[in-house]
Design a protein around this nucleic acid. Sequence first.
DNA 1: TTGTAAGCGTTATCAG
DNA 2: CTGATAACGCTTACAA
Lengths: 374, 374
Amino acid sequence: MSEGPQRARRGAVTIEEVARAAGVSRQTVSNALNAPQRVRPDTLARVTAAIRGLGYQPDQSARSLRSGARRTLGYLAPADDPLDPNPLMAGFLEALVDAAGAEGRRVLLFRPAPPTGDPTAAIDELVAARQVDGLVLADVLAEDARIAHVARLGVPFVSFGRTGPGEPQHWVDIANDAATAAVLRHLAELGHRRIGYLGAAEELPWMAARRAGFLAEARRLGLAAVALPGAGAPAGSAAGAGGFGPGADGFGREAEGFGEAVAAVRAVLRGPDRPTAFVAGSDLLALDVYEAVRAEGLVVGPGGVAVTGFHDTPLCRHLHPALTSVRLPLRAIAGELVARLLGQVRGEAAPTAGVELPTELVVRGSSGGRVAGG
Amino acid sequence: MSEGPQRARRGAVTIEEVARAAGVSRQTVSNALNAPQRVRPDTLARVTAAIRGLGYQPDQSARSLRSGARRTLGYLAPADDPLDPNPLMAGFLEALVDAAGAEGRRVLLFRPAPPTGDPTAAIDELVAARQVDGLVLADVLAEDARIAHVARLGVPFVSFGRTGPGEPQHWVDIANDAATAAVLRHLAELGHRRIGYLGAAEELPWMAARRAGFLAEARRLGLAAVALPGAGAPAGSAAGAGGFGPGADGFGREAEGFGEAVAAVRAVLRGPDRPTAFVAGSDLLALDVYEAVRAEGLVVGPGGVAVTGFHDTPLCRHLHPALTSVRLPLRAIAGELVARLLGQVRGEAAPTAGVELPTELVVRGSSGGRVAGG
DNA sequence: TTGTAAGCGTTATCAG
DNA sequence: CTGATAACGCTTACAA
């Protein structure tokens, strides 16, 4: 019933066995794996054959203990409710795991422990246990306690979402403002002159940037713009335990005023200068616009009110008309994050600036045509 | 420039330092941590104080190497496209990380490497490197190659989704058939007598079960039922590399016949005995029903055509009327999975049967109940 | 190029 | 109840 070594040893091929099989010493096997150029070709071939034949793979714990490299990256999953999951948990995480895997790294997930929900404690624990070489953070807020904490700790880290000016610039982000500006230009080219925006301005930096990009471009183009708040995040949630906000799009729980967004859009549609198009800060908010448009007896699309979303979730393709949306370059983001993180792990000089990656506008039926009546 | 030990040692408190600080030997510290009852209370207090004072935490690699326990569970993420992410990646994964964390375990994510996409190779790699104590699989298909493989390997594992009769019954699943049966009863109680179903029957076991549960209950209740396929999975995808299917709801890529589902529903609505309600196998399919209902000039809701979905995604609350849906007990599922997996890791006798957990029907406006939270 | 020796931080064994 | 010693599997020096 002794549990430990038995289980660990069970069926596990060690470097020793490979060495015996190949007729060499342990170190030659190790060299064949970690510094092949230092081993004579024929010996290398023999060793490689033995490795494959026995299905040998180094014990990661032993390797880590000796070398200090964990070959694992930690992803701090935002602490939200499974019933209202963070959109990043899906596509982004998959891309991250792929990008890490391409560099021979695994991704270890962790979340703040429920009682306090303190992310800094979770980070400390992971770092103290030396389980990862570096950390990936996401959903960075202004004055984010996590960023300050990892910077102080000196752990290699990167973030999806830009950090403040006084903090390390180890970030990758999308150009949220440029994205909504591009959406607006797309609509302007189709002849739209009065365009609405739906999406909160406060608390969530990416939502604020989308809105700001929209407004700045509208001013530049001389378009009539009206910006409405979407369903706001619960007041003060971003200031809660350890700087965690709500889900990436700022939606709260059940019955938290979704109807208000719809009502606000309806009011604008009933007003004197009805917008011929609406830009939404997320795909779900675009759904609210759809509902408002229909409730007013209007039709969604170029012939009525054009609508666009943000994120290009599968939802877009199930709407009628299909929803024009902004697609995030998830693979590029993940690749860049992993590259920058591994750069730090290897001790290379960190880039002094973050990087902003471009988004892609996916045009579908909801905006795909010239505005009716010019 | 020597990279390894430096980095590993940097700022890391070892058991030795704690021992010195507390005036005891290494083993006493180790005992204080792993077998407190073997240490005298006052000594224990001194050691504990030193541990907290120095912020000591055992190096997980050293601990794993020695004890064989990795304190980490592997989650094999389905190999789909980040643009069409698996619904489970969001809520389920968050619940899994929480449940594992409650048992002092971390979750290591891995995915089949892109070239071949072979999940068995990915499993072999992880197991050979001894990085995890056990595996969690999801989206189990009939004759799933992954299940057969891990069973042959003898690695502790559990699956979200039932396994075949000839395989180990280390599974947790929801009662898909009972769930749609309950939805149907809910509708019947509201007076509906002719009810449609939308959702594919083949390839994806959970989708097949939902459909079958609906049909069986309709027969039992003597209701008129018409079952339509939803947007099917791409032909043969489930038989592809290593038994991976498409996303959990069986949706494929852009323009793969979403319109067909809408057209099918519309045809039924135009038919002689129009259903007064439609049960959809997923929330996205419910959206197709919404569109079909409206395209036919009808209204969604108890006064027109009632609609229900499955999964209770945030989408439900953004629809008007809000969508009645089936909520999965994600925390219970994750908890049960972790408990069963750790049971195996500890060498306890495995339960001979899987467990089916009940779902919760969340009634909203689309089927005539009171709006939740309202 | 290859083999020898040592040690990474921890826990298990066995004396005291 | 505590302390010395060995070992987990591997990689980094250094010697051959």
